[in-house]
Design a protein around this nucleic acid. Structure first.
Length: 938
RNA sequence: GCCCUGGUGGUGGAACUGGUAGACACGCAGGACUUAAAAUCCUGUGACUUCACGGUCGUGCGGGUUCAAGUCCCGCCCGGGGUACCA
């Protein structure tokens, strides 16, 4: 074998470990650069070819930055809590820690084969008590902070209590759940039922300890609350909004229902505006920023109070179109709205109750499936337009959601399609107030046009009308301009075993946090990983799950995103056991410069960790408001499935080109039995017992398979495993090929066939340094101009390509360079030495070996990226494409020092021009020096 | 429905700011070396047309701007992803 990669790759991998080549220290003398991969959940299946794509890209970038003189932090770890290990534990009794440990070892083994430059001394695992101690610590901080809307930051609850003691809460502007005091009053009869949530210093002092705690709970950034949650009976736990898709759990695909439960929440909504604003300062892809914007979804509008006819109460609605208030012909309440029992007329009671019952039993999924089905009921009540006193009927319907705005709307059928459908269905009047549409056909929703039928705003444009109405509403004190966010507070408890225990105990029904000195609160042993018979979470099975004093501990655990929300900070100082991370470490490393990972985390992890970081920023822990400066989403690698065609009802298979002559069914065959779309029929027959003795109808002696591009999955037999490829071609080839496949951010199909080309390249590269006998042989002759040109052209292109993360074109550039140097028969040290450094970040093993053979000591990773010298690229001639009317007709080589006039003359005089000019003078001649000559004819 | 992406040879893709479309690979065809195979090397390879020189067409479709459009503008079509009564 000419290039003995198995030996060479092992040798250098061992060298890196033995010499701790990639160990990173805080070194203020060098500029820092932090490159982070989204750490993986170690699943039992191991890595397939799609997983390392981003890791290879970040590895190349890290190595490149190091060669450019940066002190690079490039760590890796494991998002180790997760449902699969726990489901496996339920089925087999194996502790999830055991499964996780095994999977981690397998991941590590696979990653090590690829030759990554991680500093493994900084590895973190979210399930490690030394790590989750700080997850618990952060929770305690959240519990003891509230969000001050005046200062727009988190502040200690202890200080808030001092304010309460001095002056009550009337001047405090906190981020809180709407109508929090109504819930409190409902549950605790010791509060005045008419209480409005405001108290004086004297009243505060008079509250019992429990009352005080219950009030404070509503201020905390980590708080307990009864709320409608997404309950997944199959998994026995609640789920966050981003863990559900179309009414089913993302993990496992089990149905999810709504249920009222007491849960821990994180008040992420307090940060909604800052999370939105931060997106302006950060380099993420447009689509990711858009996804986050939509998820947070800010809408500006107004809250307006409509008095209820004949009652002393009013109905608050939220609208983004206050301009259309005179077009509101009915009101709609969500079925859960608290005013329904109060305002429903006696003769409508039965019908309304029946509707509420129906709406309640209708599951989330049914609602989603039947979006277009219009249902609702009239309450018999009327409210009055606050401007002109006109009565408007009040309806209840489940197309209005309780959780958004005030849970009530003013319906404007002429200018809202949902209201329009509702009005049509129940024959309610439709009043046009914005000119520009045709309301006999459909609603006119555009925010564009002139107001009509609208009293004091007639003739205004929509935009002016909106601000005019809001101003008037404020003046009349019948409401106010408001901003609503779609983002909900994050449900933070899970009724599962395999997660971080909450550092919380209950004393007389009041939640307290453990003292920081008692952390970590370790996950206890249990006899089974299932809920108890009374439906309590698995931790309730643990013996002595109490504090030293005997107070019961919280039995829920934290969700998956808890441990991943601040891991990038812990990497800065991962072995610190007295603090999360030191001031020195965070001041040096600051934030992540480049973050690479999948876009499936757009609305989960990436929002939570931005929130987490902002909170730590407020408390002075982290030093940057945004944790990730630049973020790249690598595309998915799709599988390329191979298909065979079975003649229906037989064991006869027909080759692709002939399948239309038969009645066939498609069958996925394992891609390992297929080479270049040709099926190994012998392997196929022994694949499964039922296929033994299969017959084949061949084309030119071969069985040609069809193919389909779909997701890489075991069930489609198209999974390609990196271990096999590395064994056959080596890690360097594998790395290069993953990059060569296409642009990092695009999804693309995997096709193992192409890897041969990269393998050929690697060996061709090796042969530049070796003679026919595979003996290392380079000369010390001075390089000539052509060779220097090739080298510096390559340096320039490689540098540009890495900077813009265009790794696929960089690989092509290496191929072109090696092809050209081979043609030039260049074996000169002066050229090849720089080339080795250039390629070192892409193909580190072969680079190390050649660097060593060139007589260097130490690792090529510690050398310096070659400097590009433009003087070697200066050309004195240029081959101009000469076009007539934009069509290239011939090429013309001209010296580069000609003036535009001289170029024009040369082009006109060229003998090929004669034919196209046909003796006539051209209308115009366009010359772009060193680009193009275009002659325009009449 | 709305938002974001993408659409270039048989395949993966290149062309970064409008300036020689198809770089670099794969595959395929032919050839060299070999007893043979593997490996390696060489040649060709968008379509149509021509003995050839050459010509015509060509970046999802239809228009437009420009000396010049894969690239910019307008209107569609198709694939992938997100989201869905959010008032």
């Amino acid at each position: 074998m000419d290039y003995n990669f198995p030996e060479i790759e092992k040798k250098w991998q061992k060298y890196w470990v033995d010499h701790k080549t990639f160990k990173t220290t805080n070194d203020p003398s060098r500029p820092k650069y932090y490159v982070l991969d989204m750490f993986p959940y170690p699943s039992g299946a191991g890595l397939h070819v799609g997983h390392p794509l981003g890791y290879i890209a970040s590895d190349i970038y890290s190595r490149y930055k190091r060669l450019k003189g940066f002190n690079v932090l490039h760590p890796m770890g494991y998002d180790a809590y997760g449902l699969p290990a726990e489901q496996y534990a339920i089925q087999t009794g194996t502790h999830p820690a055991v499964t996780t440990e095994k999977n981690v070892a397998r991941y590590r083994e696979q990653m090590d084969q690829i030759g990554f430059c991680y500093d493994w001394d900084r590895e973190v695992k979210t399930c490690d008590p030394d790590y989750y101690k700080w997850t618990q610590w952060t929770f305690i901080q959240l519990f003891h902070h509230w969000y001050n809307n005046k200062t727009k930051k988190a502040e200690p609850v202890a200080e808030l209590v001092r304010v309460f003691e001095m002056e009550g809460n009337s001047r405090v502007e906190a981020s809180m759940t709407q109508n929090w005091f109504k819930e409190l009053v409902k549950k605790d009869p010791s509060f005045d039922p008419e209480w409005d949530g405001i108290f004086t210093a004297a009243e505060w002092a008079a509250y019992t300890e429990k009352q005080q705690h219950d009030i404070l709970m509503n201020y905390r950034l980590a708080y307990l609350s009864d709320a409608m949650v997404n309950w997944c009976p199959e998994l026995g736990t609640v789920l966050a909004n981003d863990e559900i898709a179309n009414g089913f759990s993302v993990r496992g695909g089990h149905p999810v229902e709504r249920k009222l439960m007491r849960q821990w929440f994180l008040r992420i909504t307090a940060y909604a505006q800052r999370l939105l604003d931060g997106l302006e300062t950060v380099e993420f892809s447009d689509s990711l920023i858009e996804m986050q914007r939509n998820w947070i979804s800010r809408s500006e509008g107004a809250e307006i109070h409509f008095p209820i006819q004949g009652k002393e109460i009013s109905l608050s609605i939220f609208t983004t179109r206050p301009d259309t208030i005179f077009g509101s012909t009915f009101m709609v309440l969500a079925p859960e709205h608290e005013l329904i029992p109060v305002i429903t007329a006696p003769d409508r009671r039965e019908a309304v109750d029946q509707y509420l019952l129906m709406a309640k039993n209708r599951s989330e999924r049914e609602r989603m499936a039947e979006v277009k089905k219009v249902t609702g009921e009239f309450t018999g009540a009327y409210c009055l337009n606050p401007f002109n006193g006109k009565p408007i009927p009040v309806w209840v319907a489940d197309y209005v959601l309780a959780g958004y705005g005030t849970g009530a709307i003013m319906a404007v059928p002429a200018h809202d399609s949902r209201d329009y459908d509702f009005a049509k269905h129940f024959s309610l009047p439709i009043t046009e107030v914005v000119a520009g549409g045709d309301i006999s056909v459909s609603s006119y929703d555009a925010k564009d046009g002139v107001m009509i039928n609208s009293e004091f705003i007639n003739g205004l444009q929509v935009k002016e009308a909106i601000s005019t109405v809001i101003r008037r509403v404020n003046e009349m004190k019948i409401g106010k301009g408001t901003i609503n966010f779609r983002l909900r507070d994050a449900i933070f408890s899970r009724q599962r075993y395999w997660g971080e225990p909450f550092p919380v105990y209950f004393k007389d029904g009041i939640a307290h946090t453990l003292d920081v000195s008692e952390l970590p609160l370790r996950l206890p042993e249990v006899d089974a990983y299932l809920p108890t018979e009374t439906g309590e979470p698995p931790l309730a099975r643990a013996k002595n799950w109490t504090t030293k004093e005997g107070y019961p501990l919280e039995t829920s655990t934290m969700p998956g995103f808890a441990g991943s929300s601040g891991y990038y900070l812990r990497y800065m100082d991962p072995r610190n056991d007295s603090e999360y991370f030191s001031k020195d470490a965070v001041n040096y490393w600051q934030d992540v410069d480049l973050y690479i990972g999948g876009d499936e985390h757009a609305t989960g992890h990436l929002i939570y960790s931005r929130f987490w970081n902002k909170f730590l920023f407020d408390t002075g822990m982290s030093v940057k408001e945004e944790p990730f400066k630049r973020l790249i989403n690598q595309g998915k690698i799709q599988g390329r499935s191979s298909l065979a065609y079975r003649i229906k009802g037989t064991n006869k298979f027909v080759s692709l080109g002939l399948k239309d002559q038969h009645d066939t069914t498609e069958m996925h065959v394992d891609v390992s039995m297929v080479d270049n779309d040709i099926l190994d029929t012998a392997a196929f027959c022994s694949w499964r017992p039922d296929l033994a003795g299969s017959e084949f109808i061949l084309e030119d002696g071969k069985y040609h398979c069809g193919y389909a591009v779909e997701k890489m999955s075991k069930s489609l037999y198209n999974v390609v495993n990196p271990d096999y490829l590395i064994e056959k071609y080596g890690a360097d080839t594998f790395r290069l090929y993953e990059m060569f496949l296409g642009p990092l951010e695009q999804s693309k199909p995997w096709d193992t066939n192409g890897i041969e080309g990269v393998f050929r390249f690697i060996r061709k590269f090796w042969r530049l340094f070796h003679d026919d006998q595979n003996v290392f042989s380079v000369s010390d002759d001075a390089p000539d101009a052509a060779e220097l040109r090739v080298l510096h052209k390559t340096i320039k292109k490689i540098q540009e390509d890495i900077e813009r993360l265009s790794f696929n074109t960089a690989v092509s550039t290496f191929m072109i360079c090696v092809n050209e140097l081979t043609d030039l028969k260049c074996r000169k040290r002066a050229i090849l030495s720089d080339l080795v450094v250039l390629i070192a970040s892409y193909a580190p093993h072969i680079a190390e070996e050649l660097w060593f053979l060139l007589g260097n000591s130490g690792s090529v990773s510690m050398s310096t990226f070659p400097e590009f010298k433009p003087e070697y690229l200066i050309e004195n001639t240029f081959e101009y494409p000469v076009s007539f009317n934009g069509k290239t007709r011939f090429k013309l080589v001209l010296p580069t020092n000609l003036t535009v006039q001289e170029i024009e003359k040369a082009a006109m005089d060229a003998k090929e021009s004669e034919k196209w000019l046909e003796g006539k003078p051209p209308k115009k001649v366009i010359i772009v020096p060193k680009k193009i000559i275009n002659i325009v004819l009449g």
